[in-house]
């Protein structure tokens, strides 16, 4: 028994070291974002700045339109999230509560779109967005991303868990569909809707691949694109400012995750993606 405890102890130490390693990049960014550039280079290893400074953050305001860029990111992520969740909710509702022709085939075909790589759609979508005059415009980023089969899948899974009799009863009482959705279904699938929303928001906030093709000028950038401006690791003069921008970029997703972690972990554990 003693050796078992001892072994367990070692395992915990390994696991916690592993976590510290995965968290280190985040701590590294936060600590260096509050250092002066010279200090960041002379004492790279120390995690607590000797001379605490905010100049990297204030420097951002002078060099790029950081407020506008943050607002762009916020609008893009919010609109994409609302659109994806709304279209997914409606589609999932149709799939779970109605019988219609080719239902299984439709659902299967929808799910298959998850596995289509973005390189297969990027050229035509680029042409569509150019044709619509939405190049270099956040609406050009948003438009192709308003539906997502992953959302349909997650909400279908959670609606399947609601007893059908409940809805049948409401239908018999002639309650209009929109009230059935709003008053009966929505409250019961709220945890799934919440975590799907948070997840979509985080994905859209971090989105890089599609915006990089569409957005061209700094004032239209989203945060991940703005970070590109600070990449050149050769020069290094921007290092601490790059860290400040990294901290701003990850703050919202991290905050949302820490607030909703139970929801998110539960949904991913129980939605049983198989």
């Amino acid at each position: 028994m003693k050796t078992a405890n001892y072994k367990n102890m070692i395992l915990h130490i390994i696991l916690i070291s592993f976590i510290l390693l995965t968290i280190y990049p985040i701590v590294f960014a936060i600590s260096n974002s509050f250092k002066e550039l010279s200090e960041a280079f002379t004492s790279t290893l120390s995690l607590i700045p000797e001379k605490f400074t905010l100049e990297n953050y204030t420097g951002l305001f002078d060099s790029i339109p950081i407020v506008g860029i943050t607002i762009n990111t916020l609008i893009t992520a919010s609109v994409i999230t609302v659109a994806k969740v709304a279209t997914s909710f409606l589609a999932a509702y149709a799939i779970v509560y109605y019988q219609f022709k080719f239902k299984n085939v439709t659902y299967f075909a929808l799910i298959c779109t998850i596995f289509i790589p973005f390189t297969v759609t990027m050229i035509p979508n680029y042409l569509i967005i150019s044709e619509l005059g939405l190049q270099n415009n956040i609406w050009g980023v948003i438009l192709p991303q308003m539906a997502d089969a992953i959302g349909i899948f997650m909400l279908t899974q959670s609606m399947k868990g609601i007893p059908k009799s409940l809805i049948e009863a409401a239908k018999l009482d002639n309650i209009p569909t929109k009230y059935i959705m709003k008053d009966h279904i929505l409250p019961m699938v709220k945890p799934a809707v919440t975590s799907t929303s948070i997840w979509f928001f985080i994905l859209a906030w971090n989105e890089y691949v599609w915006p990089v093709l569409i957005l061209k000028t700094t004032e239209n950038f989203t945060l991940p694109l703005a970070l590109q401006l600070y990449i050149s690791s050769e020069g290094g003069t921007n290092f601490t400012v790059a860290m400040a921008l990294s901290v701003i970029t990850m703050a919202i997703p991290l905050g949302l995750y820490l607030i909703f972690q139970k929801h998110i972990i539960n949904t991913f554990t129980t939605s049983g993606i198989k």
Partner: peptide, 12 residues
């Protein structure tokens, strides 16, 4: 704790 890096942008 394991999930934390999953919410961070790959550019970051």
């Amino acid at each position: 704790a394991f999930f934390i890096p999953s919410v961070i942008s790959l550019v970051v």
